[in-house]
Simulated scan of single mutants.
Amino acid sequence: MTAKMYSLTTCVALGVLLGACNPTPSVTYTPPKTGTVNGYTIDATNKDTIKFNVSALDDGGKVILNGKIDSFTVKVDEVTGNPESNNAADVTATTTICGQYTSAGGPITCAVVLDASSSMTSTDPDEKRSEAAKQFVGRISSTDQVAVANFGAGGKDPYEDLHVYQSFTADKALLNKAIDDATKATGSTPLWESTVEATDLLSKAAGNNKIALVLTDGQANGTGNVDTTIAAAQKANVKLFMVGLAKGQIDERDMQKAAQMTGGLYSKVTEAAQLNDLFNKAFNQSQAFACLQVVFKLKGKVPAAGTEIKGTLTIKMNGGQFVAPYAVTFL
């Protein structure tokens, strides 16, 4: 054996030995203590197919950033609004993991956009939206960046419909003051024009996890449309988190489409007192999430428009499990 060959053989053998002595450490995932169903979308073609967005939390209430969902099950507790049957036993559910659990992409760059239309006087007379937005801000870290704006009460240069009260910062005192200033109820609902302008604001900011968190309580009555908004968000790599206070009619179909087409979130509540929960779930979604698909059939058929199904998802993940409630209104 030549010296060169002996040296090579020795190096290979040494490498194998060192590898055996120092194996690659296994990854340990945090088991969940609890979790949330953050929102959902309904498939535009298959109207019985629901995609839920879920996040897992540790025993300290922090969002778990990585892991693996092994399986999940669906429990149906209540059915209302169906013309044929409101019996939960008539519902079947077929499950699929449509997106494995993953981090959302690091520190957030988020524009919090509040509806300032006059109808907020009746839908949120106690200004719970301000409390909810401040709760969202309270959870950000020093590496996150948030801006605060509203729409409906008149825009501020350079925007026609969007009024920016605070540009991107992690300073919670400045953000909370801006939320107070932005909590108005005096105008109309130029929802899509304002969301396009929020996307423009985000396009000029740094960061890879960009979100427009847009709250509205009514139907858009401006000249913009959802398709233009989606195109602008996709171009700027902005996820649209469309959240509704649905005491009356909101543009659910378009809001779901905006969320689905931008990798964002759609969710709604019916009472202003529930806005804290809604904004909390939006923050969870901004950190990490999975997609869980459920096909619901009621007596073997697609649930009729207006049908609401409520229940729980039991999700096995990271060696543990959590149970989270859901509520779906079919369109």
Rank of each mutant, 00 (worst) to 15 (best):
V12I: 15
A13I: 14
G15M: 11
G15Y: 07
G19R: 08
P23A: 08
P25R: 14
T30N: 06
T30I: 15
P31S: 13
T34Y: 07
G39S: 09
G39H: 04
Y40A: 05
D48P: 01
D48W: 00
N53A: 15
V54F: 00
L57W: 05
G67N: 08
I69V: 15
I69E: 00
S71H: 12
T73D: 13
V74L: 11
K75C: 04
D77S: 14
T80E: 15
P83N: 07
E84Q: 14
V91N: 02
T95N: 11
I97F: 09
I108G: 05
D115K: 02
A116C: 09
A116I: 00
S117N: 10
S118M: 11
M120Q: 13
M120K: 12
D126N: 14
E127G: 07
R129A: 06
G138V: 13
I140S: 09
I140H: 03
Q145F: 06
V146E: 00
A149Q: 04
N150W: 02
A153G: 14
G155V: 11
K156P: 01
D161R: 06
Q166D: 07
S167R: 05
F168P: 10
T169L: 11
D171S: 10
K172C: 11
D180C: 05
D180V: 11
K184C: 03
T186H: 03
T189R: 04
E197G: 13
A198D: 03
D200G: 13
L202S: 05
K210E: 09
Q219V: 10
L245I: 09
L245G: 00
I250S: 02
D251Q: 06
M255I: 08
A258G: 00
G264M: 01
G264E: 00
E271H: 09
N276M: 01
D277Y: 02
F283K: 03
F289K: 08
A290C: 09
K297W: 00
V302H: 00
P303S: 12
A305C: 11
G306K: 06
L313N: 00
T314K: 13
Q321P: 05
Q321W: 02
F322N: 04
A324V: 13
A327Q: 14
L331N: 10
